[in-house]
């Protein structure tokens, strides 16, 4: 028995060694990568291609027949007021919240990077908005902004300002932006913190010797050095927030009217009502916006690198 086992082991060893070391590494790499690649093909690449095909169809499983309509869905999109408003607010939401998240993110990151006693506490507090469910944040803030019982409404009232955030279209949009900035600034801050930690102390020392104050060394040392990272994070946030649907869904249901509806929310609504063709066409519009953001990102990145 023992001898047998020994034998079979040598046999397998001989067999495997027929493959060169490189080939064996390729087999190992393929096995290690297979699960992730399969997952991604199955849930992104295949649906992506399929969505593009579906966008040229009129397809609702509840109302057959399914038929090819060419650009019909896109013509419908062009004249759909709700979609136009949603695309408009999507762009405001995505660019507006990313801008403020980057600005506040840099400020918070500087705080989290500075040496003081409560630094670890500050880092833990910073994670709270990031970690709590978006749905919880949305309904909580919805209540804070409530026109009758909300704390924010009441505090403003005490200051002599009477304003119903969620009834006014502009107010509702601002409220959504505030929540988005509150919720995602922590993530941006941690990412920028990584960049700040990479800036060497010696540079600041040298600047101090040359008589620069904190503000000056921030502008002329820190900011230029973290700029490439900031642009990268900004790109990530732009693309990522394009898909944010839970915030408007849970906070305002797109209202008042459709003032706070975003494209992602419209897609979800169309999917829920089984308008698969139209939902796919809206998805293609979203892909185009992603492409646009990609181009902006590449240009921005070039400029940052040239500036360096």
């Amino acid at each position: 028995m023992v001898a047998n086992a020994e034998n079979s082991r040598t046999v397998t060893r001989v067999k495997t060694s027929r493959l060169s070391l490189n080939q064996r590494r390729y087999v190992a790499a393929a096995l290690l990568l297979a699960p992730v690649i399969l997952l991604r093909l199955f849930t992104t690449l295949y649906p992506f291609v399929q969505t593009i095909f579906l966008s040229f169809e009129k397809y609702n499983p509840a109302f057959p027949p399914r038929q090819y309509v060419g650009l019909g869905n896109f013509e419908k999109i062009a004249s759909d007021i709700v979609v136009r408003s949603s695309v408009e607010f999507t762009l405001i939401f995505v660019f507006g919240s990313t801008l403020f998240q980057l600005i506040f993110g840099i400020m918070v990151a500087s705080l989290l990077n500075s040496r003081f006693r409560l630094r670890n506490l500050a880092r833990t507090i910073n994670l709270i908005p990031w970690a709590i469910p978006m749905v919880v944040a949305a309904v909580g803030w919805r209540w804070l902004f409530d026109g009758t019982y909300g704390w924010i409404t009441d505090l403003l009232h005490r200051l002599g300002i009477d304003y119903s955030w969620l009834i006014d279209p502009v107010g509702a949009r601002i409220a959504i932006l505030i929540v988005s900035v509150w919720k995602s600034t922590p993530f941006v801050a941690i990412s920028i913190l990584a960049g700040l930690q990479g800036v060497s102390e010696e540079l600041y020392e040298a600047a101090r010797v040359d008589g620069a104050n904190a503000w000056q060394s921030f502008w002329s040392i820190t900011l230029p050095l973290i700029m490439p990272l900031t642009v990268t994070i900004g790109m990530f946030m732009l693309v990522w927030q394009l898909a944010v649907f839970d915030l408007p869904y849970a906070m305002t249901s797109g209202g008042p009217g459709f003032a706070t509806s975003v494209l992602a929310y419209q897609i979800q609504q169309q999917v829920a009502t089984l308008n698969y063709g139209y939902a796919s066409a809206l998805s293609v519009v979203m892909f185009l916006i992603v492409g646009l953001i990609g181009i902006i990102g590449v240009v921005a990145f070039r400029r940052v690198q040239v500036a360096l």
């Binding site: 590494r25 390729y26 190992a28 790499a29 290690l32 990568l33 992730v36 690649i37 991604r40 849930t43 992104t44 690449l45 295949y46 649906p47 992506f48 399929q50 969505t51 579906l54 990530f236 693309v239 990522w240 394009l242 898909a243 649907f245 992602a264 897609i267 979800q268 999917v271 698969y276 939902a279 796919s280 809206l282 998805s283 293609v284 979203m286 892909f287 992603v290 990609g294």
Partner: peptide, 29 residues
């Protein structure tokens, strides 16, 4: 375990973040 095209696979994986989850729902459903 670098192999020919491994950088491309990595790039493809990272770039696939850009396909928004909400825009891929219909085929998955």
């Amino acid at each position: 375990l670098k192999f020919p095209g491994s950088n491309l696979v990595f790039l493809g994986l990272v770039l696939s973040i850009a396909l928004p989850q909400v825009a891929l729902l219909v085929p998955i459903r």
